Simulated assay, not measured.
Amino acid sequence: MRRSGDHRYRSAGRVRLAAVLALSMLAVLLLNACSNNESSVFHTGSEETALDNVSRVPWDYRIVESTVGDLIGSDMTISPDNELMPNDENYATGDKVWALQYMDAELTTDANERSNVQLSAWSTIKTFKTQADAKNDMANLKVPVTTEVDLVGVYKTQYKDQTRNFAVLELPSGNRIKQPIDDKRYTELEKKKKVSVQLEEIHDFADYDSAYAKFRGWAG
């Protein structure tokens, strides 16, 4: 009887050991599967591609005549948007000031290198006592440039009896734009690879080396 009981005990022990080993192997396999799938769960390829095609660029500046409103400590509010700004010039309520405002843009480029632009609201970044001072400051941020750019090509579209011509340019920023052109310019550009244009470089006031070039016309 004792031997039979020992035999049953050893058999049960082997069964329990096999079960433990099987559960351990299953746990290892599950952990490996989770590890291998971690990037696909938290970071999909499409999300990474989309992020690579989105950039924020400086878009424009303007000068707006404003009025000083409430004084709050060392700050002030200015109309018409009631923005809070540092009162570095010790303005008084009711004083007229010239506000330099800034707009940036979220630029999305698709697989065909076509751009979609989402503009921000205007925000005031600095105030001046005179319009001349404001214009002098803005002149350093909006810089006209005449240069050569790559001409991707020209093409025609036709709808009923109307024909329209377009030129596709690649700007120094890398994005491509299309511009309507007349028949004469179409003939001039048809076989060219480079073309002279007028651009306006919009520099970021917080990082001057960051700039975006905007097409402003044909040179020559």
Rank of each mutant, 00 (worst) to 15 (best):
L71C: 06
K194L: 10
G45I: 07
R114Q: 13
T49F: 05
K178R: 12
E47P: 00
P144H: 04
K178W: 05
S79P: 01
S210T: 14
Y212L: 06
M76V: 03
A18K: 10
D133C: 03
I78H: 03
W218Y: 08
I181Y: 06
K135P: 03
P180N: 04
M76Q: 09
E38M: 12
P180F: 00
A50W: 10
G94W: 05
F205Q: 02
V152W: 02
V143A: 06
D88L: 15
D6F: 14
R14K: 15
N140D: 08
L119N: 14
N116R: 12
V97M: 02
L199F: 01
G217R: 10
L26T: 06
N82C: 04
W218N: 06
K192Q: 14
R8H: 08
K96W: 01
E89Y: 09
Q131M: 01
N165E: 08
K184L: 09
H7C: 14
M25K: 15
N87D: 09
T108M: 13
L107E: 11
D183R: 11
T187G: 08
Q179E: 14
Q158A: 15
K126S: 14
Q179L: 13
Y208M: 03
D52W: 01
V168T: 15
D204M: 00
V143S: 02
N82S: 11
S46C: 02
R16S: 10
S115L: 01
Q131D: 08
G217P: 07
A18C: 03
V41S: 04
D183A: 13
L23W: 11
E201V: 12
G73W: 04
R114I: 11
A121K: 13
M25P: 05
K193R: 08
L26P: 01
D6V: 11
D150L: 07
E48N: 03
V149P: 02
A121C: 05
L199Q: 00
D70T: 12
D137G: 00
G217M: 06
D137L: 02
E201D: 12
I181W: 06
G153T: 05
I125V: 14
Q158G: 12
S35C: 13
L71E: 08
T163E: 14
